[in-house]
Nucleic acid binder design. Structure first.
Lengths: 207, 207
DNA sequence: GTTTGTGAATAGTTTCACAGCA
DNA sequence: TGCTGTGAAACTATTCACAAAC
């Protein structure tokens, strides 16, 4: 493999490949081809080979990919091998759903702290996680937390992100659709649920 | 404007522009420039002008965009002007969060029906919506529903999507990461929350 | 003077086709 | 023979720069 710029889209797909590898590995399969992975995911095999090629040699020509090796490799690339911990801010309906969300576990991700502004929630536990006062949010890195999940009303998302930045957080999964300004070096991935539902009718024939 | 293929990315951004227009309009602003919209959203103004250019003439040179006209125009393009209704399948933690989610309203979207497999939930109401038996899911078009939201465990997502297709649904917002096969003409937009959190550590400097 | 709308240039991503290795 | 890894080609999207419109 020679160096070249890694497409963002290739990075975005790595977790998908990782999930497929984990699934197939869980079924007792040790080795599979790009075709085997592609069929599972519903993409084309050269897409997978191309994406992997940006990160090094994953497979063996004529044979395929050893799944446990692939899993280890992708886990390291995505920095999931250290079991990243996230702090959730906003324990409303969406926040609660995220606390109990089963999908994080397979990636080794964990919500290790939760914060809210509501005095009635503070001090209680939800899904085993203590809800703390968002006003006391500070220094999360010393607690081994370096990701943030923002599930607050959009009016407060900017100040929450500022507070998370102050607490040393460099990566945020943001469910608020409002534009936020972030310090240099911070990465924000926004999930805009309403936007995604709102563009759906465009594709649906009028009726 | 001359015809050319409309980029998917431009369609994806239309709801963002619509939200900005609604916000600014709500503040009493009648007219703004692409720069004014861009500042609000956090993008560059030519991106907005280019995107609008695929759909026709929205603005007035030297003046800008009349917001109520813009809102009406974008609403029609996205087919939001008829107030699309969605059926939610899966009233777990995530489904409940979606039922109470405030973000759909501004787009004129409504969750008009909810389905679950759990007998204890069926017959009850949540956020004013009656929870019906998913086994009785049929013929949603006659109820004026043409969108589906799938928030079920991934093991059942395929059969739920099959049932929605049977019920006449042509557009689905899918929260299950599993690959699903869909009938021709059906559009599925997948939100993969775990995938988005899982690629975040990649961008965060090791520490 | 100001701002739009858009052709042209640049950048990024996907797809192909096949050399090279097991 | 079968499958990977990858240059090259094709396609798609972003960015620029400016003529035309107000």
């Amino acid at each position: 493999m020679r160096y070249r710029k890694i497409p963002d889209e290739a990075v975005r797909r790595l977790p998908v490949y990782l999930r497929a590898a984990l699934h197939l590995s869980g079924r007792g399969i040790e080795c599979t081809s790009s075709q085997g992975l592609a069929d599972f995911i519903g993409v084309e095999p050269w897409q997978i080979r191309k994406d992997f090629s940006y990160f090094g040699d994953f497979g063996v020509p004529g044979v395929g990919y050893n799944l446990s090796r692939l899993i280890k490799h992708v886990n390291r690339i995505l920095r999931l091998d250290t079991g990243p911990k996230a702090a959730l801010v906003g324990v409303g309906n969406l926040g609660t759903a995220l606390l109990t969300f089963p999908g994080f576990r397979m990636y080794g991700l964990e919500i290790a702290a939760a914060f809210d502004i509501d005095k009635r929630k503070i001090g209680r536990r939800k899904a085993g996680v203590l809800i703390e006062d968002v006003a006391a949010l500070s220094d999360l890195r010393t607690r081994g937390i370096d990701l943030g999940i923002v599930a607050v009303p959009e009016a407060t998302s900017q100040q929450v992100i500022d507070a998370l930045a102050q607490a040393g957080i460099k990566g945020i999964l943001n469910f608020s659709p409002r534009h936020v300004v972030v310090p240099r070096g911070m990465k924000v991935i926004t999930i805009d649920i309403a936007m995604d539902l709102a563009r759906l009718p465009y594709y649906v024939p009028a009726g």
